[in-house]
Design a protein around this nucleic acid. Structure first.
Lengths: 206, 206
DNA sequence: TGCTATAGGTAACAACGTTATTAGTAGCAA
DNA sequence: TTGCTACTAATAACGTTGTTACCTATAGCA
């Protein structure tokens, strides 16, 4: 039947797409962004570059899929944070998870937020798909605000402020501007940034 | 005399270097990072690419000079902030200037903070030279802290936290994640981020 | 006037993204 | 089985990029 054929074909396509994306991820994480060439990725799966072009269109298309994948990984890592009965403590935990996610795979972080990846800017469509991680952050903020722990304000704006702080501290550290002696003091700087942020958002000052 | 000859030669070299760097700046600002090729820059000054290689070594050398130039521009823009007798208000003004600097020349911002500019990572030497802008920020923080307006803390760490907030909010806006309806609401979001930061750092809560 | 050093132009090389051409394969109908 | 159609992938090529080997020319000096 035609439908089954089409279905099987699209399943094959999906499996192939997934395999190619994983190959690209492997190259990206283990060899860096410079090594992520069409030839390198295709040879990773022992095929020609043509496969990449039929499935992703061009390199920008491949990068866009990696971009979406990177945001999914971020969301999964933020979702893995266990909830307690203290919304503010949970917000701090998710803040730390943001940094951990970036430090675990810095090259992915570069795909998500490195401007200037040769002519790559994610489509509005991809950006929207990527915002689910932000929506998650927004949930944490809303929860703390509804519990009366944060000063009443527009939730979306407050969440943007939270994201900006986490993102700025993480970016500067990854770019080497927090090069204190040891890694633990960098972690402490991040911790203090989060503390300051919470203090600024809090209804009561401790 | 040898010294004069050498001096004249090095002056010429310096003038030439400056001219090439300005040409590269023009291309970068007006045509974007993709257009910044060795051939494009050399044709901007009607010369061959060889000149760029004798003066900068390779493309990474040219990017490194643009990196230093970008941080000097940032420092100049931050220095242009007029001082008042309110250290906290001045800190807010310098915070706004950070954003303005980035929005004025986003491509320069990409050179400074875009990871993944094809294999470009600034040398430790350049990073150090670039930190003068940060030192300036540190001065504003110190002034406000010594006036008793900010909660006593390590000045350098507090300045890092300030920088992280400004940088995060600016980066996310430039990357298109603050795509509210109009630009003025983006400015307001940034303003609120700065307010929250100040509140978190303040000794007294208003 | 020659000698030396060095800077700059030309043309080429290797690697990259991309595509035109070609070959092969799977499904379908006779 | 035998053609026909659609589509996929391999190959080889093209244009552009960073880079360099080779050559030329110019400036200073004896």
């Amino acid at each position: 039947m035609v439908t089954n054929y089409q279905e099987a074909k699209s399943q094959n396509r999906e499996a192939l797409r997934r395999g190619l994306l994983d190959a690209a991820s492997r190259v990206l994480v283990s060899e860096g962004l410079e090594a992520l060439t069409m030839r390198r990725v295709s040879q990773e799966v022992a095929a020609s570059t043509k496969v990449l072009y039929t499935l992703f269109g061009n390199k920008e298309g491949l990068l866009e899929q990696l971009y979406v994948e990177g945001f999914e990984r971020l969301r999964r890592n933020l979702e893995a944070v266990p909830l307690s009965d203290d919304p503010v403590a949970d917000l701090v935990k998710v803040a730390l998870a943001y940094r951990e996610n970036a430090l675990a795979d810095p090259t992915y972080f570069a795909v998500l937020f490195g401007r200037s990846v040769a002519g790559f800017t994610p489509s509005a469509n991809s950006i929207e798909a990527a915002m689910s991680g932000f929506a998650l952050l927004e949930g944490f903020v809303q929860r703390a605000m509804e519990a009366g722990l944060l000063r009443p304000a527009d939730v979306k704006t407050s969440a943007k402020i939270v994201w900006a702080t986490l993102h700025g501290a993480t970016s500067l550290e990854l770019d080497g501007y927090f090069d204190d002696a040891d890694p633990s003091s960098r972690r402490q700087t991040y911790q203090l940034a989060v503390d300051t942020l919470i203090k600024g958002l809090s209804r009561f000052v401790s």
